[in-house]
Design a protein around this nucleic acid. Structure first.
Length: 486
RNA sequence: CGGGACGUAGCGCAGCUUGGUAGCGCGCAUCGUUCGGGACGAUGAGGUCGCGGGUUCAAAUCCCGCCGUCCCGACCA
């Protein structure tokens, strides 16, 4: 049993798993559903998802994509058309065998991902080079019967978006694959304040049915990696399986080259694990349901006056596009401070009789300088400056979170060239090392250290050496990133 | 599926060894006092002790069976 602080939360440093679960429940992000592995996303958590969705969706639109919706149920036979795909997903399929009171002629699988149905539809829609490219995204839910669920990180049913594009040739499809990887990395940094390592998965970690799989990998507060978005070049694998062909300018029939890319509710888990601390959640401002919380202080007339001023300032902030909330609950200020810290609100504003008289508010940042009691150093800001200054404060806070995460990641990443150093490094962070590229060697490293190749980074100097584990010549032409993963 | 822990009030837990009126803390409700870092007092509501059998005058407690949950591993966005 780990010791808990006064909030009843196990310290992050003590037990990350316990901390994570307690934060998710206490901050009211989500709750467990009645069926194993399912989750209820509560309003506070769902608002984060809506903010994430809106900002990611805008980026898809900006890069020329349109949204559509494809069915939840897929004929089981469809999955079998692409050999690697069915092999990869079969173990985790939920299959409907009975419906409408009788057994179905052909079972239906609940989509684990939609390459197959979408492939089928694309084969009907695409006939000419003039129909290409097809640039469609879908926001939906998928089901994968995972053996060990964890809220947000790996639930049986999860929400995500899956982009599916079809192109005339490899070059264009690869450009799309890389473009969307870049969109994810930019989004993660700009919106979620998480710096990501962009890279390619090794063959052993590739998506079932893909020719090449690219990933963004973030480092969580315990030094573990979280795959936070993927972009796949599928070659003509699905085009061949679903007969997606077009006639080119020379009147020759060609298979299209397809891509798929996705980001899921796991990203909420990434935000929790990348930024949180012993006090609770730390939300990046652009995903925070509440960016500024105002706590009026005082009783009787003082309290009424403070509350009125808080409402007035909040109305001005709201007009300026800030997500602000005034806490009118009948509870002590101290309670409210802790409560909003647990919920990760970036800026807290205190407004009491003394401030009213002086004409300023007291602002505390959720993460920032602390005093000797470990509490946020507060600053006094005149009313007028405050209202006009909040957007800049939030932007600066965002930048600080990015920098903090980046510094943390860099401090916990090391280039290693011998096995002992490798073992020590992956216990607490990322190791950058040579690898021979053999799947058996990857497995061996995993059973010895729990670490897996996270990616072959896009960045990173060309270099050759010997495998960190088996001394065979290195593959990939550069060092690759290893780490323990969620 | 393997290893571990656990199921008692909304939440966290004690009680079980040695069977005998089901408890504590938090939370909740009402009233009063409080209010600048999780305030305090008084009163009160809230339980088929996971489910099914068995032993017994009597089972949360002992016995048998089942179900479920969580954590660690294999799978994975």
């Amino acid at each position: 049993m780990s010791k808990k602080n006064q909030l009843g939360v196990t310290p992050l440093s003590e037990d990350v798993s316990a901390w994570y679960n307690e934060i998710v429940f206490k901050a009211e992000l989500a709750d467990r559903g009645p069926a194993k592995g399912t989750m209820v996303i509560r309003p506070y958590g769902y608002t984060i998802w809506e903010l994430l969705q809106a900002q990611l969706d805008q980026r898809f639109k900006d890069t020329g994509h349109v949204n559509a919706y494809f069915p939840l149920f897929i004929p089981e036979s469809y999955l079998h058309r692409e050999a690697d795909h069915v092999e990869g997903f079969s173990p985790e399929l939920a299959v409907v065998t009975h419906a409408g009171g009788k057994e179905l002629d052909e079972p239906l699988v609940v989509r684990p991902t939609s390459e197959t149905v979408i492939g089928e539809m694309y084969s009907r829609w695409i006939t000419s080079y003039r129909d290409l490219p097809v640039l469609i995204n879908a926001w939906n839910n998928v089901v994968r019967w995972e053996l060990r669920p964890r809220i947000f990180l790996r639930t049986t049913e999860f929400l995500w978006q899956e982009g599916h594009t079809a192109h005339a040739d490899q070059q264009e499809a690869m450009d799309e694959t890389m473009q969307m990887l870049g969109v994810y990395a930019e989004f993660a940094r700009t919106v979620a304040a998480i710096p990501m390592i962009e890279g390619e998965k090794t063959p052993g970690e590739r998506f079932a049915g893909a020719v090449r799989t690219f990933t963004i990998e973030g480092m969580m507060r315990d030094g573990k990696a979280l795959q936070s978005g993927t972009s796949h070049y599928l070659g003509t694998n699905f085009a061949q399986a679903f007969d997606i062909t077009y006639t080119d300018v020379n009147n020759e029939v060609q298979h299209v080259h397809t891509t798929s890319w996705g980001m899921s509710t796991r990203m909420i888990g990434a935000v929790i694990l990348a930024h949180g601390d012993d006090q609770g959640l730390v939300l990046p401002p652009r995903l925070a349901p509440i960016q500024v919380v105002m706590v009026p202080i005082g009783r009787d007339e003082d309290g009424v006056a403070a509350a009125a001023k808080a409402d007035e300032l909040a109305a001005e902030l709201k007009a300026a596009g800030v997500r602000v909330h005034v806490d009118h609950r009948d509870a002590s200020p101290g309670f409210k401070f802790s409560d909003w810290e647990l919920k990760g609100v970036p800026l807290r504003v205190e407004l009491g009789p003394r401030d009213l008289e002086a004409g300023h508010v007291v602002v505390a940042h959720r993460v920032g300088e602390v005093d000797d009691k470990g509490r946020a150093v507060k600053q006094q800001i005149p009313f007028a400056d405050f209202v006009s200054g909040v957007p800049a404060l939030l932007d600066a806070y965002h930048d600080m979170l990015v920098e903090r995460a980046e510094t943390f990641r860099d401090e916990n990443t090391s280039v290693v060239d011998n096995w002992d150093a490798f073992e020590a490094q992956v216990a607490t962070g990322f190791a950058v090392a040579f690898h021979c590229g053999r799947p058996e060697c990857e497995d061996d490293i995993k059973s010895a250290t729990k670490a897996t190749p996270r990616c072959i980074p896009l960045e990173g100097e060309a270099a050759e050496g010997v495998c960190i584990r088996c001394d065979n010549p290195s593959a990939y032409g550069k060092r690759i990133i290893f780490g323990r993963a969620y």
